[in-house]
Design a protein around this nucleic acid. Sequence first.
DNA 1: TGATTAGTGTGATATACATCACGCCATAAT
DNA 2: ATTATGGCGTGATGTATATCACACTAATCA
Lengths: 187, 187
Amino acid sequence: MVEKLREHIQKRVPLTDDEFAFVLAHFTLKTYKKHQFLIQEGEPVRYAYFVISGLLKLVYTDEAGKQHIVSFAMEDWWETDFQAFFAQSTATLSVECLEDTVVFCLSLENYHKLCDGLQKFERFFLQLTIAGSIAAQRRILSLLTTKAKERYEQLLNQYPTLIQRVPKALLASYLGVSRETLSRFTD
Amino acid sequence: MVEKLREHIQKRVPLTDDEFAFVLAHFTLKTYKKHQFLIQEGEPVRYAYFVISGLLKLVYTDEAGKQHIVSFAMEDWWETDFQAFFAQSTATLSVECLEDTVVFCLSLENYHKLCDGLQKFERFFLQLTIAGSIAAQRRILSLLTTKAKERYEQLLNQYPTLIQRVPKALLASYLGVSRETLSRFTD
DNA sequence: TGATTAGTGTGATATACATCACGCCATAAT
DNA sequence: ATTATGGCGTGATGTATATCACACTAATCA
């Protein structure tokens, strides 16, 4: 539980026991059941979440009521509506459990305290954000350059476990293709 | 010139004169002509660039030799192949001038020195990266949820000046649509 | 200045993909 | 046990967009 968070941070910056204790004190642990919402559109976004176990989806619902998957979050991933979290405004996205899920919650206030109190944490978070930003750019490129079938195959290679845990309709939505079209990709 | 960089950083974190002098000492100024490359695919990426004036494009060339615009960079924007810059590996993207362009160059070595020597700079860069990451997510959503014509209209509203400075074929590439289709959008 | 090239528009045709409609099974709820 | 419900596949049809081909104009250059 606690070790997962420590390992995750230490992949990027080393921490002493004391430093990690300081970090840990700023998180709270929560458990959610499948179908529960961590963030609902229109409501304030109180936390950024680090996933210990389980699976989340980050979703945008368009005017027509159609859902679009912005991202999934498995073990070791962070998830929240970052725009609303940092601006302390209400969510335009929602976060829902696809499985029973355990998360560490970090409030914006505690995020600031962590960054002020431990420079290493800020550096960790910067590295994390840079990596996320690069990944987002790759996804944009893949949307620009490849057909849906190719994107699906890339996803199969990159996250083979995800495919088994997520209904295909949601994978389709993540890839920007209809579930019917994705269903024909085994051809 | 120098003031542009200072204003840009101070939008996010305040700086004393001394602090800014320290920051500035880590940048070098360079001037490029239209059609020159700042970064070429396959070559090492020595700098991240802050644009003082002019206009850059960040481009990916696919196996078929077709170019795809990852992003444009106008005044006050940063541009580089971040993946390659931080990993100190060779570029998979290239950066080329669409106009005569003046940039401040920051090497990775100096980036680290800046972060180590002035925590405020690291905070500034984190905020910048967070904003970039959120913007990338918005672009992904717009690619997932909207038709090309709508994306074009959104771009017109968001960056009206860009449209006048950039050939439509490049806008089309940025939007993920063929130039012929984009050309029919005035209907 | 005349020639080349870049930028743009537009018709005809092809295609990837969406949408609608239906049926089938497995799981969950009553 | 029976009924809903969710997940998945598949045919038929429609549409947004790609691709190919060509022409026209405005820059750029020799």
